[in-house]
């Protein structure tokens, strides 16, 4: 039973740099150009799950990314992990798509690839972090879909058993392929790339698809046609008093105790006495 699996992999600006993001005071646009991209961390779990399924049942893993054209490095990394083939959807017309439009474009590409048994995504992205694309993609494809899957087992010919997370526990499900799943971070530990993998990656099939390659309604994609529209942008003002307190470890611990009380927390605490003070006093 060889399975044809699509994994949705989004290149995102590296979260390590988010603290440096600013808004241009004149144009009111986000300044993030210098930030390098990485594979969205959650999507590595999606790739790993696909690799584990392939190891067991055989098949083919195809990665699908919608992004600007300069993300080849990230796509090579996905191939180096072990994916077989990659598609990059890239077109100026796609820019600024919200989750409605993004999931629509991804779905059209999956339809074009055709004959898919399983679609795997991450649960959320690190930049937008909407968590909405997976379920919306499932809806477009008209296949059953589940979000935050913590266990996925293929029983026999196309029958699957799954567990999803809920607030204080989990739910168990049965389903039949084809379906779409968004896997949680807990489901597996993504493997590292090997030198062999990196070498092979460059020879694997890789294809760019643009607007003209997909059967899309132009009036429903991109920034201006997305149902949700972005309004004003604000930088979160998170700065507080930011008073720096220095002192001996005893003073710092005492400071915490005192401020717990000031914060209305009932504490019964003994005073913290500096042990070294006593010692020096004896001399």
């Amino acid at each position: 039973m060889a399975l044809k699996i699509v994994v949705c992999v989004k290149p995102i600006p590296d979260p390590a740099y988010y603290k440096d993001i600013t808004i241009d005071p004149v144009t009111k646009t986000i300044q993030r150009e210098a930030i390098p991209t990485i594979i969205n961390p959650a999507d590595k779990h999606a790739i790993e799950e696909a690799l584990k399924i392939k190891e067991k049942f055989g098949g083919k893993i195809i990665t699908l990314s919608m992004a600007p054209p300069n993300v080849i490095k990230n796509i090579h990394e996905a191939l180096a992990m072990g994916a077989d083939e990659a598609y990059l959807l890239t077109d100026k017309k796609f820019a600024g798509s919200d989750t409605w439009a993004t999931s629509y474009i991804l779905a059209k590409a999956i339809e074009k690839i055709g004959g898919i048994d399983l679609v795997i995504t991450g649960t959320e992205t690190g930049d937008g972090g909407t968590s909405q694309v997976p379920s919306q993609l499932g809806e477009w494809l008209k296949i059953p879909h589940l979000w935050n899957v913590i266990e996925f087992k293929i029983k026999n010919e196309k029958e699957v058993y799954l567990k999803t997370k809920i607030e204080n526990g989990f739910m168990e499900w049965k389903c039949k392929l084809p379906m779409a799943i968004a896997v949680s971070r807990e489901i597996n530990t993504p493997r590292y790339t090997t030198i062999m993998g990196v070498m092979k990656a460059k020879k694997k099939p890789f294809q760019k698809l643009t607007f003209d390659d997909l059967n899309l309604d132009e009036k429903r994609i991109g920034l201006v046609n997305s149902p949700t529209q972005a309004g004003n942008l604000h930088l979160l003002d998170l700065s507080r008093k930011g008073k720096i307190i220095k002192g001996s470890k005893e003073e710092l611990a005492q400071f915490i105790i005192d401020n717990l009380k000031a914060g209305g927390i009932s504490v019964e605490a003994d005073p913290i006495i500096c042990s070294c003070e006593g010692e020096t006093g004896n001399e």
């Binding site: 700065s239 720096i244 307190i245 002192g247 710092l252 915490i256 605490a269 913290i272």
Partner: peptide, 27 residues
């Protein structure tokens, strides 16, 4: 540390020293 910009009070110190003292003080 960036967190100090988001705090009312930023205590510069080693956790490994401060936690045992808090434990002691709280009995």
């Amino acid at each position: 540390a960036e967190i100090f910009n988001f705090s009312d009070f930023g205590l510069v110190g080693d956790i490994k020293e401060i936690l045992p003292l808090l434990m002691q003080s709280l009995g």
